[in-house]
Nucleic acid binder design. Structure first.
Ligand code: SF4
Ligand code: SF4
Lengths: 135, 135
DNA sequence: CACTAAAAAGACTTTTTCTATCTTTTTAGG
DNA sequence: CCTAAAAAGATAGAAAAAGTCTTTTTAGTG
């Protein structure tokens, strides 16, 4: 249960790598993929998502590539994970209680809310800056 | 990410139902399934797992059925979830760091440990007794 | 003992999600 | 115009989830 997918893992590796570079350095996707050991075509898809959400900036054509969209201390792990995995939802009823007719009287329901809050709290407390810091 | 499967959801519903009955009451699987709105054949598989782990006791043949294996105040939600979903593992490296050659110097790795601890903590703090309590 | 009720066990199917690749298009620099 | 690089979209294979069906074992009952 609760397992991060490969996509999520790859996404983190890729963007943490970027965060470890000078903020304005433009990196080739192929270089990033090689450095973090991820299939380049897969990482391309991931970075496209990042780009749409502004987490990274992309440049096409010759001399193109990717750089971080904001300062690494202003990007949390939560944002990165949710960008590619979607929101943190331990159980469907957390987002749509109406799905389950029991949510009104269900004592389990609030537990999932707490789990959600806990996980989000942990991930929100970590920035790319910290993650990329050497050692 | 982190979504409980149907199996997990069904498992909780089923065992919480049992927890709401007198401890020594034997319930038919078909009755439980109807009461908690779960496909009976699917719930059967789930309860077989519970039975192997001692979370419920089963009785075959005429007059058979299921009852709770222990007092509901001694069964935590964590046990129930892990019984059917397996251990809470936010990322594979939490259980086998060797899978990923980066675990030694990776700053993300410890975050997943914290997530794991947080989720386990929440689920461990909830017992079937509380979950089955009316209101 | 024969009959019936009920769970256990195992095989199997269908659907969905994940993982990954390939091709074509757009953009930009030289 | 040519080349480099990302964007977009289609597709395919593998794995996991969700659910069903059949057969077997166990146990009570007349
Ligand atoms: S039964 Fe409770 S925990 Fe399960 S889906 Fe419904 S509201 Fe959520
Ligand atoms: S890179 Fe870090 S977080 Fe990702 S699998 Fe390896 S050790 Fe775990």
């Amino acid at each position: 249960m609760m397992e991060l997918t490969r996509k999520g893992e790859y996404a983190i590796r890729g963007i943490v790598y970027l965060a470890g570079k000078p903020i304005d350095k433009v990196c080739l996707l192929s270089d990033i993929a090689a450095a973090v050991d991820v299939p380049p075509t897969f990482l391309a898809k991931i970075f496209q998502q990042f780009s749409k959400m502004g987490l990274v900036k992309s440049f096409r054509g010759t001399g193109g590539g990717f750089m971080l969209g904001r300062a690494p201390e202003n990007i949390t792990l939560l944002e990165v994970v949710e960008a590619v995995e979607g929101p943190i939802i331990p159980n469907r009823c957390v987002v749509t209680p109406s799905d389950c007719g029991r949510s009104d009287f269900c004592n389990v329901h609030p537990v999932w809310k707490r789990v959600q809050g806990g996980v989000r709290g942990v991930l929100e407390g970590v920035t790319l800056k910290e993650l990329s810091a050497g050692k």
